[in-house]
């Protein structure tokens, strides 16, 4: 095991898969000569050349669509969005083409592609740069949505995503890139659709994903200090999410708290809450609660943004309400 950053984990995943399969290439803004806006692609240009590490103009719609065409033809593009908030100018490509073409062609064409980049707030860059669109894309039937919280999962899931024959939307985080963690030295794949148990406890189940997992972990530690222990489930994959692992925990704790950074209306937590109440109604001792981003556009002001994001204080308040 080596201790590396989340950023290095992603970099290793791409390098290993590009080494393994010549049809894999990386395309996006500043991925090559600049070495990545967040240095995730550092060194890849030098190693694989400009044919396979492709700098683009600021043209998300065109390069996303170009990647769709390349995938239809049989290549395996990795498309980097400098920020998922910038993907919206390519929304047509992502929804109508990535989301429909396999189905609409009667299954004739596959789209083995990964769209990846950071999402979420916390860096004071304002409402247009702080979106969490995971749930929006999860609403499209053919899309797979992955959001790892730890370096090991970032590497193992990105490798699985690149090898998947289906389009995977892969959500990273600016706050996550510098996070360090142990990652196995030998090659490994993390299965898409399986959650990770971050800590165990019998009083309460907390489900989270991406950077919010770390906030939830801090809250669970604080809760422990007050004598209550939470199961913390890091989804890793938002769609398809690991219902069975959640069910197993809820049948033990009978209480469910969902922590998600996106805005509340129809966020992914709402789907989980629906499924759990529908299938585990008799196991619940309290209403399911969700701690989400507050229902306003992201403010620039740092103190306000800290309140808008799911934070330890709000998670603890919700936990106490559930346990009361």
């Amino acid at each position: 095991m080596a201790k590396i950053t989340y950023r290095q984990a992603l970099n290793q995943a791409m390098a290993e898969e590009m080494e393994r399969d010549s049809s894999v290439f990386l395309i996006g803004e500043e991925v090559a000569e600049y070495q990545g806006a967040f240095k995730v692609s550092q060194g890849l240009l030098q190693r694989f050349g400009a044919k396979r590490v492709v700098d683009t103009p600021i043209s998300e719609a065109a390069f996303s669509g170009l990647a769709v065409g390349a995938a239809l033809y049989g290549l395996r593009p990795i498309v980097e969005f400098m920020n998922w908030s910038f993907s919206f100018v390519a929304f047509d490509q992502l929804i109508n083409n990535v989301g429909s073409l396999r189905f609409m062609s009667g299954g004739q064409f596959d789209l083995p592609m990964v769209f990846r980049g950071p999402s979420g707030g916390g860096t004071q860059i304002g409402a247009t740069h702080s979106h969490c669109p995971e749930s929006w894309f999860a609403g499209v039937p053919a899309l797979t949505v992955v959001s790892p919280a730890f370096p090991e999962d970032a590497k193992g899931l990105l490798k699985s995503s690149i090898r998947s024959n289906n389009p995977v939307f892969f959500f990273e985080g600016e706050w996550l890139y510098g996070l360090e963690g142990e990652v196995p030295d030998a090659e490994f794949l993390t299965p898409i659709g399986e959650a990770r148990i971050c800590r165990e406890g019998a009083d309460l189940t907390i489900v989270s994903a991406g950077y919010s997992t770390h906030t939830a972990l801090s809250a669970a530690e604080a809760l422990s200090a007050s004598g209550k222990e939470a199961d913390l489930i890091d989804l890793r994959t938002i769609k398809p999410y690991d219902f069975d692992r959640i069910a197993q925990s809820v049948q033990k704790t009978n209480r469910l708290l969902i922590v998600e950074e996106n805005k509340p209306f129809a966020g992914w937590g709402a789907q989980i809450a629906y499924d759990v109440q529908r299938r585990l109604f008799d196991w619940l001792d309290a209403p399911i609660l969700r701690v989400t981003g507050l229902d306003i556009p992201q403010p620039y002001n740092g103190k306000l943004e800290a309140q808008v994001l799911p934070n330890v204080e709000r998670i603890l308040a919700a936990a106490h309400q559930l346990l009361a």
Binding site: G65, L66, A70, N97, M104, S105
Partner: peptide
Amino acid sequence: FDREHHFYGGHAIVGSHTAVAAGLAFA
């Protein structure tokens, strides 16, 4: 659509397929 004949569709969002076409040529 007709994969066998390298026919990549029929696309109904106006202009959208031009970028996809560039991707075919890229590949």
